[in-house]
Design a protein around this nucleic acid. Structure first.
Lengths: 210, 210
DNA sequence: TAATTATACCGACCGTAGGTCGATAGAAAG
DNA sequence: CTTTCTATCGACCTACGGTCGGTATAATTA
């Protein structure tokens, strides 16, 4: 039997189903057939909309990154929040792990998902660096930050934050985390050239992590 | 026809062939059959020595990391080199890209090799962090470094250096590199708490990169 | 030396994966 | 009513990672 739908709709259905599967089971572990079963379409239909399984992955990652960037931009717009808080909140809100009652948290960056992980990191860096450019400039102008290479500082902080808390590149024990977070904040402070202890208050923000 | 060899020898042959292929073509793009062709053995023989293709990958990565760590340890032993130089040289010598007349440079961390990449990063961090522990302590004791979290500092510097120059996580243009390296050195200085410009001299060291 | 055991090896075979393609059903346009 | 265009189908292809029963050679033992 044949159920015909508008192209846009079908494409979205595929994206939604694939996204859930990729996150839940991992990209490699999800077969195209798995996706077909959920969307209830034939193989030909899938390849009518996407040239490959990987193309679906890329589309999904761009979506995820875009959603994160939007959340960050939203926070950054709110000038009633003190600058440093604004920046920290934006960076955290951007990460899919913190947002979402979804189960993205545990699943997104597990070991099996190296491809998803790497593509995500790249896309996130590219999208987020410009977003933080303005608030960082503001910090420098207002004499809160003191740094020679603001752009590179943004890149570094984004990358570091992501690698430390979103991936599990380091094999830390649960009880080590507070110390790791403190160290992370301390290193950020130094790179930003803030006065010492400026970021101390953000320790709790990370507390909500699993 | 059947050529019998000692187990250790065959295993090594497989490892050598696989390593070259994984690096040259990428892990996913290399089929077990490709390896068989080079070593000139049957499939059964391959799986007699390794439980899976992935097991070969893991063994190879451990080898690469181990070789790097050995080079680093060698340099670190030489107390005639000034401390800061010793540390910087060790970190650079450890990376497979810098060592090796082989073509590892371009190939090892290309986009297709996400799995290799991720496993390598993890293993490298685990192996190298303890190696740098002692020289870092020496730096703190001798009042050259000033930091509260030395271990985390090591982890961060290793990770950062690797991600910036060994992977191509950032999509930098060739002409941007000098600036990126300067920024990197500047950030390291701040994290280490050295006096400003301490690492300036190492700019050229990175110059030999492609 | 003959028999036995242990080690290294073979290659046909299997299930499943990603991907192709010609056919076709249904809606819109002429 | 016919044509055209879009969306859909599913049989089929190739290649892959991995299995397995059997075998040749080397090492032990009798």
């Amino acid at each position: 039997m044949k159920t015909v739908k508008e192209g846009k709709v079908r494409k979205q259905e595929i994206l939604v189903a694939a996204r859930e599967l990729f996150i839940k089971k991992g990209y490699e572990q999800t077969s195209v057939n798995d996706i077909l079963k959920i969307v209830d379409i034939a193989k030909g239909t899938f390849y009518y909309y996407f040239a490959s399984k990987e193309e679906v992955l890329e589309a999904i990652i761009l979506d995820i990154v875009e959603e994160g960037a939007r959340r960050a931009e939203m926070i950054l717009k709110d000038k009633s929040i003190p600058l440093v808080n604004r920046i920290m909140m934006a960076i955290m809100a951007q990460a899919p792990e913190f947002e979402g009652a979804d189960e993205i948290k545990e699943e997104l960056h597990k070991v099996e998902n190296t491809k998803l992980e790497q593509l995500y990191t790249k896309a996130m860096l590219k999208r987020m660096t410009p977003v933080l450019q303005e608030p960082f400039s503001e910090g420098v102008e207002r004499d809160i930050f003191h740094m020679t290479y603001p752009t590179e500082c943004i890149e570094t902080i984004l990358l570091l934050g992501h690698m430390m808390f979103d991936c599990d590149i380091f094999e830390w024990e649960m009880e080590e985390y507070p110390k790791k977070i403190q160290a992370f904040l301390c290193n950020i402070e130094r790179m930003l050239g803030t006065k010492e202890g400026e970021l101390k208050g953000f320790l709790q923000m990370f507390g909500q992590m699993s």
